[in-house]
Simulated assay, not measured.
Amino acid sequence: MDNNNIKRIELELKLGRELNALISASHALNVKTAARFDSTLQPAAFLLVRWLFSFGPASATVLAESTAMDRSSVSRLVNQLKKLGYVQSEISPNDRRGILLSLTELGRKKTIDALKEKESLFYERISKWDDSKLELFTEMLRDFNCQDPK
């Protein structure tokens, strides 16, 4: 194996370590944020809340597919969220037979409150970056996540 291949392997291993650190820290922060939202709920429930907050009303099927959860888990968690007044059901305006789930005002308020702490930690980490570094990081993450620019 030549030096170029060895260097590439070492770089890929370093990238893997950094991605693992990012994923682990993100997971820990998500669990903490979920507890701040409502400590009686499982963190997976907050994942649904967070998705609805980011993307708006959706069917249970879309929530399950988007969060990689099985439909029975989504159904159980949505029922808990409804009972607590965080989520509501509404008839789909596009398909009168379909049901869309959305956050209630209480759900939106509690989500915003819970995210303030998470966002402050995130912004603290990038606060010393100049715009070009932040732009490059964003572009590289978009490429890595295989997302088209919007």
Rank of each mutant, 00 (worst) to 15 (best):
D148V: 07
F46L: 01
F137D: 01
R142G: 03
L136I: 02
F53M: 06
G56D: 03
L11A: 12
A114P: 02
S132I: 06
D143V: 00
D38G: 04
L101R: 10
G16Q: 06
L121S: 00
S72V: 15
L115E: 08
R36Y: 03
L103Q: 02
Q88I: 11
T40I: 04
L115A: 00
I112C: 00
L134V: 05
E119F: 08
D38V: 03
W51D: 11
D70C: 07
L77H: 12
F122V: 09
G16A: 11
R96H: 14
L19I: 12
T67N: 15
K110W: 01
F122E: 07
S120P: 00
L15K: 13
L48I: 15
I126L: 06
L41W: 03
A28T: 08
F53H: 13
E65P: 01
E65L: 13
L121T: 00
S75Q: 10
A35E: 11
L11I: 05
E18H: 09
Q42S: 10
R36D: 07
S132V: 06
L48M: 06
R96A: 12
F55K: 14
T111N: 06
A58E: 07
T61R: 14
E90T: 15
M69P: 05
S26D: 14
V87T: 11
A45I: 01
G85N: 14
T138Y: 01
L101G: 04
D70H: 11
L136T: 12
S73K: 15
Q88R: 15
I23E: 12
L52H: 02
F37G: 01
E135H: 04
V78Q: 05
S132T: 10
V31Q: 13
R125M: 05
L77N: 12
K32M: 08
A28I: 08
F122P: 00
S89L: 14
V74R: 07
D131Y: 02
M69Y: 15
A114L: 03
N20C: 09
L106H: 04
N3L: 10
L141C: 03
K7T: 12
K109M: 04
K7A: 14
L63V: 15
S39A: 09
A35T: 04
T104S: 10
N94K: 15
K118E: 13
R76M: 13
L48C: 01
L15I: 09
A35D: 10
L103H: 01
F37Q: 02
R76H: 15
E139S: 07
I6A: 12
D113G: 00
F122C: 01
L134R: 13
I6V: 13
A28L: 14
A45D: 01
L13V: 07
D143G: 06
D38L: 04
K118A: 14
P57L: 00
T40C: 04
Q88Y: 14
L141D: 00
L63M: 11
K128Q: 08
S92M: 12
K109Y: 03
A44F: 01
L13T: 04
L22S: 05
V78E: 04
L101W: 09
Q147S: 07
L29F: 02
T33C: 07
F53S: 13
A64Q: 06
D38S: 05
L103R: 02
S102N: 07
Q80C: 14
F53A: 13
P149F: 05
Q88N: 12
I126N: 03
E139R: 09
L103G: 02
L15S: 08
S59E: 12
